[in-house]
Design a protein around this nucleic acid. Sequence first.
DNA 1: CCCGTTAATTGACACGGTGTAAAGTTGTCA
DNA 2: TGACAACTTTACACCGTGTCAATTAACGGG
Lengths: 196, 196
Amino acid sequence: MSSDGRNTRARILESAVELLESGTGSAVRISDIAKAAGISRQAVYLHFPKRADLLTAATRYLDEKNDVDARLGESRSAPTGLVRLDAWVAVWGNYIPEIYGIGKALMAMMDSDEEARVAWEDRMQAVRHGCAAVVGDLARDGQLVSDLSQEKATDILWMLLSVRNWELLRHECGWTQDQYVEHLKQVARASLVARV
Amino acid sequence: MSSDGRNTRARILESAVELLESGTGSAVRISDIAKAAGISRQAVYLHFPKRADLLTAATRYLDEKNDVDARLGESRSAPTGLVRLDAWVAVWGNYIPEIYGIGKALMAMMDSDEEARVAWEDRMQAVRHGCAAVVGDLARDGQLVSDLSQEKATDILWMLLSVRNWELLRHECGWTQDQYVEHLKQVARASLVARV
DNA sequence: CCCGTTAATTGACACGGTGTAAAGTTGTCA
DNA sequence: TGACAACTTTACACCGTGTCAATTAACGGG
């Protein structure tokens, strides 16, 4: 069973993201994940000593599975700032619904678990920097609305990408993921791009 | 001590909001609140059988303390849609930092406690309706940017007012509450109001 | 003045989820 | 065959929530 080493770890992460995505978020227990992965609860602790370890590992697992880095790289090589904005928003719009369950679980722990707080804030800061880059592109192309500073525009974009928004739009308005992404694009354009 | 009936309840709520605001949010325990209120833990359960009861009561307590209803009423009687937008954003911008601790605590329970979920979503829906009203005013005054539907504009405004945003801007960017409110106003104007 | 009511107190406990610890099992590889 | 690693089972400590029962203190009305 030594070849199962990485296999089991991956199975745990798969089960974790599956449970966290499709449902009750922070109410998912370690034992639920273990059961879904077909192993004992203690085996989970063998791979992830603390709950926060599992959750942060799950975010990285999703990053790799979705090739987020590569896609974000692609988005930056688009021809104009306007297209880069669309691409960036599309990547995040599609990604957020995937991590929102994990995000909820991490946010719920943030107040009591320092490690979870740091992990989540690091993640948020990375998004923020991405927003700043995209807005910088817009400004360089002369497409940013004239009465917005780059800082303010970054904040707007970043607020729009808030994880909570997806959850609320989905639950309260019954939106699909496609609707959400399309909407994000339009809203981002309406907020940031100079009208002709 | 029968006259202490309402007094104790109020003292519990005061201690609760104080602890929840200035600090660790969902990590605040019933016993912490009891200690801060100078009573026993069981006395808290006497007034609020479940944790969710206390939290939802705390939100109502803050509403009344801050006269939120009255202020929102005033904001709607402002002369133009533009001024109404400013007033509405100011009320919520000042209110959100106060309830964000309670919001965090409620959100952390949402997945496991149905009552907490309903309470929070009701609250969010109320905000949403308010946003729709303000946007409707803008549209009636011909001030809404022409390429935005009222629905989309409502979503923008509502995303900007997300409770999470305040926390993140405060922690990651070190913003003060005044900065936040001023920023919200400007962003809302930039996003929604037709430029002349 | 006593009596009933009501709020609060103390102490004990059940429940559930996290995390730890120890001993036993199975499979692999040298 | 023996060492090693992953996983299993069982058991338990810890902590926060919520419940229960017995007790004390204060107030108001008869």
